[in-house]
Simulated scan of single mutants.
Amino acid sequence: MTTVILLPGLASDVTLWRDQLPMLQARGPVHVTEAHAHFGTLPEMAIGLLAAHDGPLVLIGTSMGGILALEVFRQAPQRVRAMALLGSSARPDTPELIALRTNAIGLFETGRMDEVLRANVPFAFHASKAQDPELVADYLAMVRRAGPEQLIRQNRAIMARADSRPLLAGLSCPLLVVCGEADLLTPPEYSREIAAAVPQADLVLLPDCGHLLTLEQPQRINALLGDWLDRVDAQVNAEAGTRAAANTR
């Protein structure tokens, strides 16, 4: 049986998928990985994820979770039945981004985590959501639970990541790419780049949406994922039928 794995973003947890879990659990096995919280590099995170889950996988990753999903595909393409990348990127960090992350790490190390988190809110959310006190409080509480050590370790992992763009031409499984039109952290051009390199990719850009898609537009994300998983299931069933027919000849 195919298992759906949800891959949270940097310093994120199950909160990021709270509105998707009921819908996905009604469909079948689903797990929120914590590999990013327990390992120091993306290759190690992918190894841990693959070891924790048997059989074919459907990977649904947002932000850093999408980057990790591509690393899982790099290591075990035969295990990946389908993949959805939400507000993510296949590119490596630029020197400018590395400098920004390095500066943030310095602030985390000196106890100034909240200063960085609050400054990041306008980049994490669409302007209309950045003024929602409950949503912002949930986001800040989630990252505070991760704490400075995870923030430092995961930022270093992201800075050291490989360029995943060369992988895209060999990605033959179903791929859904979703991005907020106002995403300032992983702009729509990153998602367009991924979709353009994968012939069977579905690209959806969400208006009035920033980086944290699953929290900002949960019902829209649920609808997109539900429809996409229906198509994935139909393809899997069709392939199984073809194999069964071939075995009877």
Rank of each mutant, 00 (worst) to 15 (best):
G61S: 02
P148M: 08
L107S: 08
A124E: 10
R118D: 07
G61K: 03
L107E: 14
P133H: 03
E71P: 05
G55V: 06
Q150R: 15
V80S: 12
A130H: 02
G61V: 03
P148W: 06
V58Q: 05
A52L: 04
R153M: 14
A104M: 10
M64G: 00
S128F: 00
E109T: 10
R145F: 06
E115I: 01
I158S: 12
V121Y: 00
V136W: 02
F108L: 09
E115M: 04
L59S: 04
P148G: 11
G147H: 00
G65C: 07
L135D: 03
I98T: 14
F123T: 08
N155D: 12
E71M: 10
N103W: 12
M45H: 07
P95F: 10
M45D: 07
P133W: 02
L135S: 02
D54C: 07
L100K: 15
A84V: 01
L49I: 10
I60Q: 01
R74P: 08
V136P: 00
L49F: 07
I98N: 12
G48E: 07
R153I: 05
G106S: 12
I98D: 14
N120R: 08
M142H: 07
G111R: 09
R112Q: 15
L59I: 10
Q78C: 01
R79K: 12
E134F: 05
P122I: 05
T102S: 15
R118Q: 10
A127D: 06
L97H: 02
M45R: 08
E149R: 15
T62F: 00
P77N: 08
R118C: 06
M83N: 12
L70P: 10
A127W: 00
V143G: 01
L140W: 03
V121D: 01
R91F: 10
P148E: 15
T62I: 09
Q131R: 11
L70A: 04
Q131Y: 03
A124M: 07
L100T: 13
A46Q: 10
D114E: 14
L100D: 13
R144V: 07
Q131A: 08
N120A: 11
G66D: 06
I60R: 00
M159Q: 13
G55Y: 07
L86E: 07
K129L: 01
D132L: 03
Q78S: 13
A76F: 10
E96N: 06
A82E: 04
G61A: 03
T110P: 09
P133K: 02
P92Y: 01
A130R: 03
R118G: 00
L59F: 04
V72S: 11
A141M: 01
L135Y: 04
